[in-house]
């Protein structure tokens, strides 16, 4: 399975943020999306998630049987600021989700919580009383059960403590099979650690950074150089 973007463009107030983007993401890989502040990473995610209308272009899934347009349930979008319905407890939110979502092989709710290391005493707490990291875990849990074909993560590990961040990294690695994961971050070491491919969003276009024979330091230098070019554009 591939997720293909063709001629995607988006402008704000006369400034073209995304310029005729053509790119294909492949199944089973984690893509690290890097770009300067204001490069358009969140705009790209919002367009792909259907939250922003594009000016032109298309995106679709392609597999052995042909191509099809992306439906809402194909895409999971994890925001850096986790959003959960805070008037519900974690268990109520999960129950509600399981009620309305067809899960192939449903398990007892506690099994899902255990998988995300959400302690039994926290499962019946209102989500408004959850910490940032715990909310993040809950948000991820819903997306994991939903099993989207494309998982977009907008700086999801920012402001998590080291333990939760490591847990989330492990989780993302374990989830990558069978889906496409695109992960935007400003932390280059994290991108190099976690991602199979590095993609730059620079001058409004997506560009894969060729790793070929470079060691980690040289690869980092190449990425930095490419990002610095944005200043001279």
């Amino acid at each position: 399975m591939k997720f293909v973007i063709e001629h995607l463009s988006k402008s704000y107030n006369g400034r073209q943020v995304l310029k005729d983007i053509d790119f294909a993401f492949e199944e089973g890989k984690i893509y690290g999306l890097l770009g300067r502040n204001g490069a358009g990473k969140t705009t790209l995610f919002n367009c792909l998630n259907g939250d922003l209308r594009t000016d032109g272009g298309s995106f679709y899934f392609e597999d052995g049987t042909g191509r099809r347009d992306a439906a809402p349930e194909d895409i999971g979008y994890v925001l850096s600021m986790p959003t959960v319905p805070e008037f519900m407890t974690a268990r109520e939110f999960l129950k509600f989700f399981m009620d309305i979502h067809e899960v192939k092989e449903p398990k007892p709710l506690d099994e899902y919580f255990a998988r995300m290391s959400i302690a039994p005493e926290d499962r019946d707490k209102l989500l408004k009383d959850y910490s940032h990291g715990m909310k993040n875990k809950m948000q991820m849990l819903i997306h994991i059960i939903a099993e989207p074909n494309l998982l977009l993560l907008d700086e999801p590990l920012t402001s998590l403590d080291v333990v939760v961040a490591e847990e989330m990294k492990g989780l993302l690695r374990s989830l990558k099979a069978g889906r496409i994961t695109v992960f935007s971050t400003h932390i280059m070491d994290l991108a190099l650690d976690l991602c199979d491919e590095i993609v730059l969003l620079s001058h409004g276009v997506l560009e894969k950074v060729d790793k070929s024979d470079l060691d980690r330091k040289e690869f980092k230098e190449r990425i930095l150089e490419a990002l610095r070019e944005e200043d001279h554009a």
Partner: peptide, 18 residues
């Protein structure tokens, strides 16, 4: 403020039927 702001970020919530 207390419901749709968070749930509208989930794809399942945006299904037309729902």
């Amino acid at each position: 403020m207390n419901c749709d702001h968070s749930l509208l970020t989930y794809p399942f919530y945006k299904k037309p039927g729902f």
